[in-house]
Amino acid sequence: MSDEQTSDAWADYLAAAQRLDAVRRAASTAAGEQAATVQAAHQELIGVRARLAPQHARLVQDLRVPEVDLAPQAAEQVLAAQAVAGGPAGALAALRQARATADAADAALLGPGPDAPWRPWARNLLVYGPFAAAVLLVQIVLYLVAPSGSLPTYALLCGLSMPVLAFALGWVTLGFVYGGEGGKVDRTPLVGAVTCLTPVLLTCMGVGLLAFFR
């Protein structure tokens, strides 16, 4: 055999060895991924069972739902078999969907959990409220320390300026606190305006009642 033939045979051997090594590596990676998927599906199955057990007990014991009504029907069994027909990956996806359904069922039965997002107006009250309380406190202090003759002037100045200042501070604070969430911040200006004007109304009512009973 000539040197050229020997070199060609060696090149063919190296190419074949490289292809075999690539196949081995691909098979090993696929086997590892499948094993990880099987393990994840097993853990997901444990979690789904743990979620369904208290729901089943609640339906049977508290709501008096018959056991026969909770058994899967033939059509549901066919759909479940089709969902897991794709192997471990399909089973994992079906189990995750089942867990999401269990979460939705808990939310429907028990209401939103402590981690559910607040409505904008309720969230904003936590910002506007302290500023409005500060306005009320300042007005009460001014009413107690202001001379009797200058009370209308103080009331006019506070009634016009302090609610506006409280609203502006609340507006800026909302942008600072919630502006990093992305998108436009819903500052609910009507809720803020009503909240910041409430101390003025309370002060006027209090002063009017005191003048009435004196």
Results as ranks from 00 to 15, higher is better:
residue 6 T to N: 13
residue 6 T to F: 07
residue 6 T to H: 10
residue 7 S to P: 01
residue 7 S to I: 09
residue 7 S to R: 15
residue 7 S to F: 08
residue 7 S to L: 12
residue 8 D to V: 15
residue 8 D to Q: 11
residue 8 D to Y: 10
residue 9 A to Q: 10
residue 9 A to H: 12
residue 10 W to K: 09
residue 11 A to T: 03
residue 11 A to H: 06
residue 11 A to K: 05
residue 12 D to A: 12
residue 12 D to F: 07
residue 12 D to T: 06
residue 12 D to K: 14
residue 12 D to G: 00
residue 12 D to E: 12
residue 13 Y to L: 14
residue 13 Y to F: 14
residue 13 Y to N: 09
residue 13 Y to S: 13
residue 14 L to S: 09
residue 14 L to G: 02
residue 14 L to F: 10
residue 15 A to L: 04
residue 15 A to V: 04
residue 15 A to P: 00
residue 15 A to M: 02
residue 15 A to E: 01
residue 15 A to F: 05
residue 16 A to N: 04
residue 16 A to R: 06
residue 16 A to Q: 05
residue 16 A to Y: 04
residue 17 A to W: 09
residue 17 A to Y: 07
residue 18 Q to E: 09
residue 18 Q to L: 11
residue 18 Q to S: 15
residue 19 R to H: 12
residue 19 R to T: 13
residue 19 R to V: 07
residue 20 L to G: 09
residue 20 L to K: 14
residue 20 L to R: 15
residue 20 L to N: 13
residue 20 L to Q: 14
residue 21 D to I: 04
residue 21 D to W: 08
residue 21 D to Y: 07
residue 21 D to C: 05
residue 22 A to E: 05
residue 22 A to I: 09
residue 22 A to S: 12
residue 22 A to T: 06
residue 23 V to Q: 15
residue 23 V to A: 14
residue 23 V to S: 13
residue 24 R to G: 03
residue 24 R to H: 12
residue 24 R to T: 10
residue 24 R to F: 11
residue 25 R to S: 10
residue 25 R to G: 00
residue 25 R to T: 13
residue 25 R to F: 06
residue 25 R to L: 10
residue 26 A to Y: 05
residue 26 A to T: 08
residue 27 A to K: 06
residue 27 A to F: 07
residue 27 A to C: 06
residue 27 A to V: 05
residue 27 A to D: 03
residue 27 A to L: 08
residue 28 S to K: 05
residue 29 T to D: 13
residue 29 T to Q: 14
residue 29 T to M: 11
residue 29 T to C: 08
residue 30 A to K: 06
residue 30 A to R: 03
residue 31 A to S: 08
residue 31 A to C: 01
residue 31 A to V: 02
residue 31 A to Y: 04
residue 32 G to W: 04
residue 32 G to D: 03
residue 32 G to M: 06
residue 32 G to C: 05
residue 32 G to A: 14
residue 32 G to R: 12
residue 33 E to W: 13
residue 33 E to V: 08
residue 33 E to I: 07
residue 33 E to D: 06
residue 33 E to S: 07
residue 34 Q to Y: 06
residue 34 Q to F: 02
residue 34 Q to P: 00
residue 34 Q to D: 06
residue 35 A to D: 01
residue 35 A to V: 04
residue 35 A to I: 03
residue 35 A to R: 15
residue 35 A to Y: 03
residue 35 A to S: 09
residue 36 A to M: 00
residue 36 A to T: 01
residue 37 T to G: 00
residue 37 T to K: 01
residue 38 V to S: 04
residue 38 V to P: 01
